[in-house]
Design a protein around this nucleic acid. Structure first.
Lengths: 215, 215
DNA sequence: GCGTAACCCTACGCACGAGTAGGTATGCTC
DNA sequence: GAGCATACCTACTCGTGCGTAGGGTTACGC
């Protein structure tokens, strides 16, 4: 057994940090395509150009591997959004920038992120990680709303705030799913549509009012 | 082996139609609690007070069984919503009634429906069934919006309509999830919150405008 | 140039759970 | 009360795929 003509040009003996990233790349790809359960560790290892025990040695169990994927992609996403929303901007501008960053990210990582995210819904082991991510998003949105409310001297119950934010995040996730399923669709345009429904609401939309990005 | 002291009082030799419903009940319960993959046919059969081959004889494969669950619960849900929205009512009233019916249903079938619904996201085999259900909902919402728009002489692109509806449905699903996770929460109140964000939008909400159920 | 640690492999064990073979009992019809 | 269909069971087979045992090889420090 010495015929070892792999497709990958980069060949042997890579340092751990590099291999780990390759494995995660492969894992994201395979998990996305097959779903958590149908994905096999063999295929992931194979796709990473490595053998299975290496994956176990570096990233651990299948579940741990999936969580690692979720975590890496989640972190990347949060980073992509982080810079977008400066607290001193008016609320609509903050919301708009956040949405733009979010949909931009999802659009650029279609099967990467969105499908992975879809996988995590359901199956208990990942509910925690997923809920944490969503929780952070909800917190951001709720914080933004709260900030704007206080600025105009108003206030509102914590649960109300949470639920409204939850709804907004949910709508956004849904459109992210939609975007991931429609490869021809434009991220920017999707963000605008989301902004319209989130900011204006059905009433205004039915009245013919529309929101458009300033500048 | 004649010790057959089952917990279920109703014992032996039931007609097919009845047993099928019992099996579906058990399946919904187990799928909800464990998730599709972790659920075992043995446990479902056991929970239905029947042996495994019966399940196969009546409802077929595990996947077919799951689809059957999805289908039954989905139909029930659509029926629950169906009567709510009379086309001659104004748009806000239609939306409100639809939301109320929807959250009422989910609230009454917490682990039944919502968790089952969550399971279906992801795993390819069920994507079709799920997409069909969601599609019907989106269609209803889009139809309602379109109707209202035409009534006021306005019109809008089909994709815009679809995406906006999609966002609204997504937000609603999210709050349904939230409701399913918060056993103490009230369905009616959740519906009101959803109505607020959907109908008024963040802008109005931040201005202190609120929507309240008429009557 | 030699030890040692990191990298990497080819196998296999093993549990778990879907689906089935083949047989038994009970009610229903005539 | 014979015949037949329907309800129902116990006890298997068998594929699949996670996780591992145990061993080889390349780089790197000294």
């Amino acid at each position: 057994m010495l015929a070892r003509v792999s497709s990958t040009p980069t060949f042997k003996r890579l340092p751990r940090a590099v291999r780990e990233q390759q494995m995660l790349d492969a894992a994201v790809k395979v998990f996305s395509r097959r779903g958590f359960h149908a994905a096999s560790m063999d295929e992931i290892a194979d796709d990473a150009g490595i053998s299975k025990p290496m994956v176990y040695a570096y990233l651990g169990t299948k579940e741990e591997l999936f969580v690692a994927c979720l975590h890496r992609e989640g972190t990347r996403m949060m980073e992509a959004i982080a810079g977008a929303a400066a607290p001193e901007l008016p609320a609509d501008e903050r919301l708009w920038r956040g949405l733009r960053a979010f949909f931009g990210f999802v659009g650029a990582h279609r099967d990467g992120w969105a499908v992975l995210y879809r996988q995590a819904r359901g199956s208990q082991p990942f509910a925690a990680e997923l809920a944490a991510m969503r929780g952070r998003l909800v917190e951001v949105v709720a914080g933004m709303l709260d900030h704007a409310l206080r600025a105009s001297g108003r206030e509102v119950g914590a649960t109300d705030l949470e639920v409204v934010s939850y709804a907004l995040v949910g709508a956004t996730e849904s459109l992210a799913d939609w975007l991931a399923d429609h490869p021809e669709a434009d991220a920017e345009k999707t963000a605008t549509r989301m902004m319209n429904v989130a900011w204006l609401g059905a009433d205004q939309l039915l009245r013919g009012v529309t929101w458009r990005p300033g500048v």
